[in-house]
Design a protein around this nucleic acid. Structure first.
Lengths: 234, 234
DNA sequence: TGCAAGAATATTATCGATATTTTTGTAAAT
DNA sequence: ATTTACAAAAATATCGATAATATTCTTGCA
């Protein structure tokens, strides 16, 4: 008998096809492979992702609840739009939540929390100081570092909402990623690390606010330039 | 041929069967008809709600993203659990967000915003001062009033997250609803209204914090009593 | 006899194929 | 030009097949 070692498939945390589709779609939206406002035709996605309609619809439903996709009555799904106003909105709220999470972490964080920050920062530093920075690698390390900072926060809901906003923000950031603007990102991260380890809530909050604001400003600038360029074409 | 006034069915805002199932399930969870941790068997729900498996799965997927339902790998769906810690978590974050939304409203709100508050308060007052208070009616009016207060806030994301937390909180509140605890709720609402209309951000924030905290404390107390009673039985 | 491990069975979740309904695009007619 | 009728496309829902999980029953051993 031949047999069927049951593929086991994806090494990522995808138990079902629905999960797989969800993660892939989400990633493709965040990374701009699926453009804002783009129509998501089930028939087309079926072939593209190699799954049936049912798991796809489930994935799209979840993405709708996450705000990455919009669903309109009987007229299917679209990639959620992007706008300057939305970026400003996300930025402002992310600052509020990350500050809050950071403060709680600083108050409640234990030794393990500190260790994790040190470790995450070290890995991030390696990437940021190396000559040829791999953007994908940096993405992961940057995410790990920010996660580590707020890992001491005990609020599940705060972390959940923060996670959504982080990824929403990432979508905007990725668009601006092409253009390189000089900026001492590493210095900002270092200040953040030190403030956290010194258990200085005020200082850490200021640092994180500056950090997020600066990222958002650069993103906004690039966004405007692109919008401008598109207008010229039209 | 006779027929088919195409049911048009639900007068609520449900365009598709999936939406219908979503709204109904959501409501049933919030109102405790579906108990925490209860297994949600598709086969069973199919007959109960009179829809097929696919729209049900979509609805459950969305509810999972909203945090009303948990999904585990290949083992189906359950109603999200409830706990004291979760209530505390929701309460704290709701205070943070509603304060923020309220402040923004007070800064940005126009005449229409004021009018809406006055109107919503008036309707709420009618219910609260009537002899036989219909809880369902009060729910709606209370919700309208809180919505009106923050309607001036321009942040879509803030309102979205607030909405989720409000409903999550409502789930806890509904459980405690049976027990009546004397409390001058109406006075609290009046203070809230006046502070908002006076454009006094600080005062309004204090009022809302008190208001939410008090509700949460009563809910917590009832929750503890129930847990205690259950232990005695076992 | 009691208990644990393993096999057989039943249940349930998941997925893809098909059917139905709704929307959309196009062309004719008022 | 606007509206109406029709055809094509697409979204949504139902159904049935498959695969995973839970449960029950047996079997082996102390």
């Amino acid at each position: 008998m031949p047999r069927t070692y049951n593929q086991q498939a994806e090494p990522n945390g995808a138990k079902t096809l629905s999960d797989q589709a969800y993660l892939q779609l989400r990633s493709d939206i965040i990374h701009g492979e699926l453009q804002p406002d783009e129509k998501l035709r089930i028939e087309h996605l079926r072939t593209a992702y190699g799954v049936g309609a049912s798991p796809l619809r489930e994935a799209l439903s979840r993405l709708t609840a996450d705000g990455f996709v919009t669903a309109e009555g009987q007229r299917g799904f679209r990639v959620a739009p992007m706008s300057e106003a939305d970026l400003a909105d996300i930025t402002q709220l992310r600052i509020l939540l990350e500050k809050q999470a950071l403060c709680q972490s600083i108050e409640q964080g234990d030794d393990a929390w500190e260790s994790r920050i040190v470790a995450a920062f070290y890995q991030l530093e390696k990437v940021e100081e190396s000559e040829e920075r791999d953007p994908a690698e940096w993405e992961i390390r940057n995410h790990d570092f920010h996660e580590a900072l707020i890992a001491g926060c005990s609020s599940k809901w705060l972390r959940r909402f923060y996670g959504i906003l982080y990824d929403q923000h990432k979508r905007y950031r990725n668009i601006a990623l092409s253009t390189e603007i000089p900026r001492d990102l590493h210095q900002e991260h270092k200040e953040l690390r030190n403030a956290a380890l010194a258990r200085d809530g005020k200082r850490a909050c200021d640092a994180i606010e500056q950090h997020i604001m600066r990222t958002a400003e650069i993103t906004l600038k690039v966004l405007r330039e692109e919008a401008h360029r598109e207008q010229e074409i039209a």
